[in-house]
Nucleic acid binder design. Sequence first.
DNA 1: TAAATATATTTAAATATCTAGAATAATAGA
DNA 2: TCTATTATTCTAGATATTTAAATATATTTA
Lengths: 100, 100
Amino acid sequence: MNIIEVSKVLSNKTRVDILKWLKDPESNFPPHKDIDHFDDGVCVGYIQDKAGLSQSTISTFLTAMQNASLIIPTRHGKWTYYKRNEKVIESYIETLGKDL
Amino acid sequence: MNIIEVSKVLSNKTRVDILKWLKDPESNFPPHKDIDHFDDGVCVGYIQDKAGLSQSTISTFLTAMQNASLIIPTRHGKWTYYKRNEKVIESYIETLGKDL
DNA sequence: TAAATATATTTAAATATCTAGAATAATAGA
DNA sequence: TCTATTATTCTAGATATTTAAATATATTTA
């Protein structure tokens, strides 16, 4: 877990919003058509619609968040689902509490 | 306390270093010539020397950190001393723990 | 009062990052 | 094969970062 890299992710409102939305997918996204749960998170298209940014920007954001280990991708057929990596999120906050 | 603004400060290694250095000025800076304590923090010149960046960059950094309420300035004669704003730092970490 | 020092601010230039849009690639389903 | 979803690449314009140099301001010292 890299403090600078994670902080960079958190320095953009959309990226923070995405993390928050993924905390409660039931409230923030419509149900998926193929699955009746959000155990692996939310597909990219829904995140893109909700954020209102371009496909390439959202994909870049998600890749950056994944590189920072803040989210975990899972492939479901044609879709890539993203869910939060709670361990890393906790670890970031805990590390700040100790080191900062 | 603004999460995005604070995260932006923390997305740069030098700025994080400055916050860490200010946590223990005795270990990280030489004593000031006019005062024998660090109760109000450390003067800009010492921070600049330690960081090895230009005067205007350090001044800009400190202003951004002050705008984010992460540090508190105190004037002592010709010098401006900066110390950490522990309340805001704690508040940021606490807010992340709740909201993120 | 004048000169020197510490810091802040401004400006210009170089470099880096952000974001969109378009195009293409990769993967999977029909 | 054709289509849908996501990832990647490229270009381009907008914004941010960082430096250097210059100027401004406040304070101390001579």
